[in-house]
Amino acid sequence: MATTSSARPLKSRLWAWTQLFLPHHLISGLVFRVTRWRAPWTTWLVRRFARTFGVDLNEAAEMDPAAYSTFNAFFTRALAEGARPLEGDEGSWISPVDGRISQIGHVQSGNLLQAKGRDYTVLELLGGDEELAAQFADGSFATLYLSPGDYHRVHMPVTGQLREMVHVPGRLFSVNTGTVAEVPRLFARNERVVCLFDTADGPMAMVLVGAINVSAIETVWAGLVTPSPQRQIGRWRYAEEQGLSIRLARGAEMGRFNMGSTVILLTRPGVDFDPAWQPEMPVRVGQRLQAGD
């Protein structure tokens, strides 16, 4: 029987508040191990998952389900060459992920919109660094949700020089629509990896937000960042004079989720996203976020 419109919010509320009592990291740690098992049923699971979530394996670099030794290898699959052409010129900002727009627009005096009636601050999101948060206080933001069936590698929206990476420990609430609408300050409470870049348009932050069952977040320069036993904020700075110069081109891979989650993109004032992009719209890697000429 179909779920009625009045029952759906109740179901979402119950699931959201049940999560307050769940052992988030224990559950995600179990998922971490299970998805890396070399199990005889992996091919069956890959085929079943692809059918259930509408995964188009024809886009993948490896199209044969039997070629994936673990479920995580399938989940973090690469795309075939040319599957995501980059729109616009070198200076135009593009989507870093396949997914759906959760929210997009301008930061309002340091506040980000999470969902209708709920917001949180850039300061909270970036781990309490006031000097850093001030750079984005009146800029633009895009919150991009990756569902289980999406491609799970994260790419550069514009060419940038890595300045700093910050690991902010936290909870692992689900980031689906219902939970985001119910749990206050969710993105500022969940574990996340903040990647700070210098670009031709000024500073940029890409925040990779963890979630329940997101058993690992990786970057191309550091490898596995989470899970981590550290319960304090960790910082890594990348300076050319120290021989740690990392520059990534527009469209290049910068990281990946090992299960679905959310990326929050922050820009300085003056970088404006096309108002045609609205919440709930699907988006793919390489699609232009700024208005065309």
Rank of each mutant, 00 (worst) to 15 (best):
E280P: 01
V107L: 04
F173A: 02
E90S: 12
G270A: 08
S147Y: 04
I212K: 01
V175D: 02
L224A: 13
V34L: 15
R235K: 10
L248Y: 05
T35S: 11
E240V: 12
M281E: 13
R192I: 06
A2E: 12
M281L: 14
G110A: 05
E280A: 15
R268L: 04
V214P: 05
S140N: 03
Q230C: 11
G260W: 00
F141Q: 04
C195T: 15
A73H: 14
G270R: 06
A7L: 14
D293M: 05
G29W: 02
V271I: 12
N111Q: 13
P23E: 02
L186Y: 02
S6I: 13
D201R: 10
Q103I: 04
Q135N: 07
Y151A: 13
V166K: 01
R38V: 11
N258C: 14
A66G: 15
D56A: 12
P85M: 10
S174E: 02
P157F: 06
A61R: 14
R118P: 00
W37L: 15
S140G: 08
I217G: 04
R189Q: 13
T76Y: 03
E280I: 06
L86W: 03
Q242C: 01
V263S: 02
N190L: 05
A2W: 09
A66K: 11
A252L: 04
Y120H: 09
V46H: 02
A39T: 13
F71M: 15
A61H: 09
Y68D: 08
Q19M: 13
Q230W: 00
S102E: 10
S69W: 07
W93D: 02
P184I: 09
A115K: 04
R118V: 05
A252H: 06
T199I: 09
G270S: 08
Y120A: 08
W221T: 15
A216D: 05
L186D: 05
T76I: 15
L224R: 15
F49L: 04
D293R: 11
G160D: 03
P184R: 11
D129Q: 08
F187A: 07
P203F: 03
I101Y: 04
A39I: 07
I94L: 09
I217W: 00
F75S: 07
T226E: 09
S12W: 10
A249Y: 02
A222Q: 13
R231W: 00
N58H: 13
P275K: 11
E131C: 03
V193A: 03
G170R: 00
P275R: 10
G54D: 10
D138F: 00
D119I: 00
L289S: 04
I233A: 06
D64N: 15
W236F: 09
C195N: 12
G260Q: 10
L123E: 10
N111F: 07
R36H: 14
V175W: 01
R268G: 12
N258R: 13
C195L: 12
E182I: 05
Q290T: 14
R185E: 14
A7V: 13
W93S: 05
E62I: 14
L265I: 11
M165T: 15
V225R: 03
V175P: 02
T70V: 12
S228M: 07
A276P: 00
D274F: 08
A80I: 06
M63Y: 00
R268E: 14
M259N: 11
F273E: 10
L186S: 07
A249E: 14
I212F: 00
P269I: 08
T42E: 01
D201L: 06
R268Q: 13
L289Y: 02
G210Y: 03
Q103T: 13
R231L: 12
